[in-house]
Design a protein around this nucleic acid. Structure first.
Lengths: 250, 250
DNA sequence: CGGACCCTTGACTAGTCTCAAGCTAGGTGG
DNA sequence: CCACCTAGCTTGAGACTAGTCAAGGGTCCG
């Protein structure tokens, strides 16, 4: 398991059930999976589908948390801003992932699209009703949440203990794994996040991310295809660097 | 709200109900709070109380996750180890906090006592039964988990964007708040974590932590009382430094 | 084709780590 | 009760990683 796995979506590892969310029309992996058809109908009754462009906000930090979102198409980032303007990317989300679920009154972070895409939003009070009607759904959320927590702890470990190249290597590997889990096996995959996004996620500057990527390129570990395509040509080396088997060998 | 709040326990902010866990004998704030007396009886029927010394492990990373623990007395740290031996403190836990809950088969991190103390452990299969019998308990866990997740994200932000003094300031303030929430209002509070523990939590070396603490002492922001007592004499300054209102003012 | 945005690379700086030495507090045993 | 002993803390000097500032180049879109 990759120690830097915060690009893992909330829906990962929850089986391959592929019930179709009536309103979204997309495979709503995970969230709806344990529900029967009546429940799905119930659920999509009040959900809305929205199309978004790159850089569009799905919701802002501090917004009233009225809705819960499912990213049905595209890739998004979650960001948190400090009072002085410094900001950090908390994580990324892919098609099929859940977004913005909180028991609090406000969203603790913002979410923006990196690519063109669509989200399906469900009123939160409606979700609470669904929890009461279908208790299994609540259990699903608990499992998701604990997995997400484990991913955050991996990220904490990476931020606290990995150097720049280790962080970038771990990020690239986890990005590749995330896309493969979502059924894109090709050797070339999408990297819609800019160097600045990656840097804000990894606690680095965009220049440092760029230098790490250039170093990998020079070692023939990766190959770039245009601005948003990347291929891992020596994944073993990247995994070795990015999984904490590095310098301080025990 | 302090951005570095990963010292906030899983039980925080869940009201002040103070039902007494029959077996533990301690105020089991939070977890048992929504349950009636019959449920409490039920719950404590198979729980065991253990006394532990400083440095004793509560459980190890990789152990089968047979039990869920409540720290009833003392302070503990949660640690994660990389293949090469580098380790990181993921967070701290105080009296009243929950520890080791996971839907996975193994504990993803280890937990060790920092002080002498006691834990109350409950068989996990028993907990699953309790979830079925008292659905409100499951909701409680979900709320705890989401709060914990928010705390992790704050920690990620601090690790990615704060410099050494900002991290240490944020840590000291959150430690003070955690102890006050648990009813120790005194100006002097416990700091049972060593400089090395703090450093591993904050992604710093023990020397850097020591230098930051010395700097605060010279500015009369804090006063040390022996090896494990600390007093925040100028909390405003610490909060200012530790909440991200710093250098890069917008 | 033009422009905007993003990426790359270089030179220099600053912050943190590393290594090392000495100190202090608190506990232990005589 | 006191001296010793150990673990943890402090401080310093130098090395090194990553940040900052700046200039130039590539890619993609309209």
């Amino acid at each position: 398991m990759n120690p830097l796995d915060a690009t893992r979506g909330m829906m990962d590892g929850l089986g391959t059930e592929a019930n179709v969310c009536v309103k979204c029309g997309s495979r709503s992996i995970g969230l709806c999976a344990p529900l029967d058809v009546a429940a799905l109908d119930d659920m999509s009754g009040e959900s809305e589908r929205l199309s978004l462009d790159p850089r569009d906000a799905i919701f802002h930090q501090g917004d009233a948390a009225r809705y819960v979102y499912t990213l049905t198409e595209g890739m998004a980032r979650m960001t948190r801003v400090l009072p002085d303007g410094r900001q950090s990317v908390i994580g990324f989300r892919f098609a099929g992932d859940l977004l913005g679920f909180t028991p609090g009154a406000e969203h603790a972070f913002g979410a923006e699209m990196l690519t063109r895409g669509t989200v399906c939003r469900l009123d939160r009070r409606r979700l609470e009703q669904l929890f009461r009607r279908y208790p299994v759904l609540e259990r699903r959320f608990l499992d998701l949440c604990v997995k997400e927590l484990a991913a955050s702890q991996d990220h904490i470990l990476a931020l606290g203990r990995f150097n720049a190249e280790e962080r970038v290597a771990a990020f690239l590997v986890s990005l590749a794994e995330a896309q493969e889990r979502r059924g894109r096996p090709g050797p070339v995959f999408d990297l819609p996040a800019t160097r600045a996004d990656i840097g804000e996620f990894l606690g680095l500057t965009l220049e440092t991310v760029s230098r790490a990527i250039s170093a990998f390129r020079k070692r023939n570990w990766i190959r770039l295809h245009g601005h948003s395509g990347i291929e891992l040509t020596d994944r073993e080396s990247l995994i070795g660097l990015g999984s904490g088997e590095g310098s301080c060998a025990a």
